[in-house]
Amino acid sequence: MIELIAIHKSFNGAKILNGVHFKIRKGETFVIIGQSGTGKTVTLRHIAGLTDPDSGEVLIEGVRMNGARNRVKEKLRKKMGIVFQSGALINWMSVRDNISLPLRENKLFSPDEIERITNEKLELLQLKDAADKMPADISGGMKKRASLARVLVINPDIILYDEPTSGLDPVMSEHINELIRRMQKDFDVTSIVVTHDMQSAYHIADRIAMLYRGEIVQCGTPDEIRNTENPIVKQFITGQVTGPIEVA
């Protein structure tokens, strides 16, 4: 369903992605782990079509995303949503207006139906009390949940998560993990999750890929990653200071 073929990307001469190559099946939850600055978010942005690679191809359901015309990108994006690390809520709109924004702007439903769907998602993500607050007045965790609610209202086939549980308390993290699992089980949603949180990765992933210095060093099931012999992956998942990964 999603395929990245030999993606190379540099920013100001610094190589960020160096031939990243993987394939994600429909309905799969694929987790990308790795140190900060290894290009996890950049990989996610390539899949979303927000960044174009220097070379390589991003295929979504067989359609090339990179270099595609705006109309093609828009069509592909109608099937996907992204939960940004910062939430990326529109700062001059209330939480409720942010969540209903894609439905209102794309005129997908009647106003009554939009209100019903928005209330349903507010309830699902425990945001009812914050519905009329502005993004500046809510916590980072709430922003992230509101961002997820804004994605869920459009019932996407693909959801991209950038650090969905960072900054959340353990109970809320677990709630989000459950939600990601439920989206896969009930609606066959394909999820790509970028995270540092190994507990969360083991819990939600069908497969985990480790990105190191712009390359995928290992890709496998949670059990394969847990029992890995790869020294880089081993050091990362156990959080040891000494090993092949240099602490900058």
Binding site: R45, A48, L50, E74, R77, K78, M80, G81, I82, F84, Q85, S86, A88, L89, I90, N91, L101, P102, E105, N106, S147, R150, I154
Partner: peptide
């Protein structure tokens, strides 16, 4: 500019807005 650097513009594009 603040919307751009805080990914709000990207979020709009992702919502096909």
């Amino acid at each position: 500019g603040t919307m751009k650097v805080s990914e709000e513009i990207d979020a709009l594009e992702m919502m096909s807005i």
